[in-house]
Amino acid sequence: MPKLTRRESIALVGMAPLAAGLAAGKDSPVSSGKSSRERIRDRYFPNLELVTHEGKKVRFYDDLIKDKIVIINFMYANCEGICPGITANLVRVQKAFGDRVGRDIFMYSFTLKPEQDTPEVLKEYAEMHGAKPGWLFLTGKPDDMEILRRRLGFFDSDPEVDKDKSQHIGNVRYGNEPLQQWGGCPGQGNPEWIVKLISGVDWPNKNRRG
């Protein structure tokens, strides 16, 4: 296939709705004019203000998602259920991607207990588990964290199950934002396997990544 720079592939992605709009018949509903990428952003990625474990304020879409390959999970610091295993797996995932983490691949762990998980608590958690730069642990206003959790599909459609934090969703979401490729896998799976899955949404031309 022709070798695209990342900028070119992003431009191509942006053209899709235009082409579809031109092909649409006269009698069709009027397009909102937004690209599919913008519609994904609007639905799933509210641009909420969050705080990293290093105390830095960030915007969810602008700073964390846009133009990146991302790996996302939800956890809380004093979780003794599935969190430690998933975090340990993600440590190995970070090791496998090496210095790409923080450059074009980013890892985000969002707290399910923002009341307790201050940036300081999360920083201690990150250090204890050996998370390296490029992997952020994030907290924010409780209402915002709840919106984020629901938008990203980290809730159970059974309200009783959803209330029980010990049954919280153990998925790891992974995706390539400009390519609009989004998948999910169990965080407790084999970490080598998780790395393979995430590699599946890598840039089409790995020589020009980042």
Binding site: V13, M15, L179, Q180, V201
Partner: peptide, 9 residues
């Protein structure tokens, strides 16, 4: 094509 219109691999 790489351009997937929002979903599809």
């Amino acid at each position: 094509t790489t351009n997937n219109g929002g979903f599809g691999k």
